[in-house]
Simulated assay, not measured.
Amino acid sequence: MTQQNRAKLSLNTLGTTSRKSVKVSQSALIQTSHLLGTSIPLVIQPTVESMDLIAWATSNRETIEALFLQHRALLFRGFKIKSAEQFNQFVQATAQGELLSYRDRSSPRHEVEGKIYTSTDYPAQERIFLHNEGTYWLTYPLKIYFCCLTVAEQGGETPIADTQKVLQRLAPQIRDRFTEKKVLYVRNYNDGFGLTWQTVFQTDDKAVVEDYCRRNAIEFEWKPGDRLRTRQVRDAIAKHPITGELTWFNHAAFFHISTLEPTIRHALLTEFKEEELPQNTYYGDGSEIEPEVLDAIREAYHQETIIFPWQAGDILLLNNMLVAHGRRPYSGARKVLVGMAEPYCHREFNVEE
């Protein structure tokens, strides 16, 4: 299904992007609800114990698409998903085209099956701040899927937040400043902290890295000792290509040094000069983002954060441009997988083909 057809589907089925009820085909097989006190996600559950989610999804793809565009976040619960293979089949049944590879990485992950990855291999005791996937890429997924196969003994939730509402919480002067200046991402690799450039770009060949950077509007600089610095400017506010909604879509707070836990932040600032930090953000013109602005951004995310416990077999489908996700610290075994689908290419930047 092309983006144009998907847009037509959204208009024909929903009328507008405002919240309206959607008539679900084969309604006897599923029931929908919301978690107590939350607007997202919409919870979809089977009414019969033996229901095959993949078969139902294959037959009801347009229904799922309409619900997805209307509600932004769908939680499929109670369908007894137990493997990466089943999760992959569900993603294939509900997404258009091939899944995205995880390149230009910011978090450690490993591939499990056919572009299905662990959600993150980041240490269990650390939290991961809310973000939309790949805002600093030129091509990013419109859909991101999570599947919980093993629930942590404690913690480990995947908090979410409506980033259109995050945008609305920010003062007009903050929105205007980021609209005008955009966001600059600066990353340094192979300084003994964080991911190496070989891991981030999935290659040992510098020429491959340089080619990727040129094609993706990324400035690069090789430093002594096999080290690399990259700089890329991206929009802070994006327009969804199907719904037309404006959304806060960036890693300005996520990558900023001030968002890190105090002990980690202190260790990094003790070890590195600011320009040598593994990652940091600025306004697009290179000027500092004011501390009070970063505080306001983090508070906006906090006010819109929705947290719910995982259940084994859950699949969470998010509209990646409109809903952010994160991770809470946890203890015990935890296995959550991720898949990214339906790439959208942002081409307002001058790139070398």
Results as ranks from 00 to 15, higher is better:
323 V>E: 00
316 L>G: 04
105 R>W: 04
44 I>L: 09
63 T>A: 07
289 I>Q: 01
123 P>G: 10
240 H>G: 06
69 L>D: 09
132 N>W: 05
80 K>M: 05
270 T>D: 14
153 E>F: 00
15 G>Y: 02
316 L>K: 08
2 T>K: 12
191 D>M: 12
200 V>I: 11
298 R>I: 05
13 T>V: 09
301 Y>D: 01
110 H>I: 08
73 A>D: 00
225 G>A: 11
183 V>K: 04
336 V>E: 02
129 F>Y: 14
339 G>I: 03
145 Y>F: 15
55 A>I: 05
329 P>Q: 07
106 S>G: 15
236 A>G: 13
62 E>K: 15
122 Y>P: 00
9 L>I: 06
304 E>I: 11
50 S>G: 10
145 Y>G: 06
130 L>Q: 07
268 L>F: 09
66 A>E: 03
106 S>A: 13
189 Y>H: 05
187 R>F: 01
270 T>G: 07
205 D>P: 05
190 N>I: 03
334 R>F: 07
42 L>C: 00
290 E>S: 12
199 T>R: 10
155 G>L: 03
144 I>H: 07
217 A>P: 00
246 L>A: 12
299 E>K: 15
136 Y>Q: 04
9 L>K: 05
93 A>Q: 02
121 D>S: 15
152 A>F: 13
120 T>S: 14
9 L>W: 07
47 T>E: 02
160 I>Q: 01
314 D>N: 08
222 W>C: 09
19 R>V: 12
107 S>H: 04
7 A>V: 06
239 K>W: 03
223 K>H: 13
190 N>F: 05
127 R>E: 12
98 E>S: 14
1 M>C: 06
352 E>D: 13
342 E>Q: 12
261 E>F: 06
28 A>T: 09
333 A>D: 10
285 D>T: 01
141 P>I: 02
341 A>T: 04
92 Q>R: 15
51 M>V: 14
44 I>R: 07
63 T>W: 01
300 A>H: 05
176 D>Q: 15
1 M>V: 11
155 G>V: 05
2 T>C: 02
210 E>K: 11
132 N>H: 09
179 T>N: 14
211 D>P: 01
143 K>D: 03
316 L>P: 07
294 L>T: 10
40 I>H: 04
234 R>N: 08
115 K>M: 09
163 T>I: 02
299 E>I: 02
349 F>V: 09
242 I>M: 06
206 K>V: 06
105 R>M: 12
106 S>H: 06
57 A>V: 04
140 Y>W: 15
259 T>K: 12
155 G>H: 08
351 V>T: 14
159 P>F: 15
68 F>S: 09
212 Y>D: 06
23 K>P: 00
226 D>L: 01
349 F>N: 10
186 V>S: 14
287 S>D: 11
340 M>I: 00
176 D>I: 03
24 V>R: 12
33 S>T: 13
341 A>S: 13
143 K>V: 05
4 Q>S: 14
76 F>N: 06
15 G>A: 06
6 R>Q: 13
45 Q>W: 10
279 Q>G: 13
25 S>E: 09
174 I>G: 00
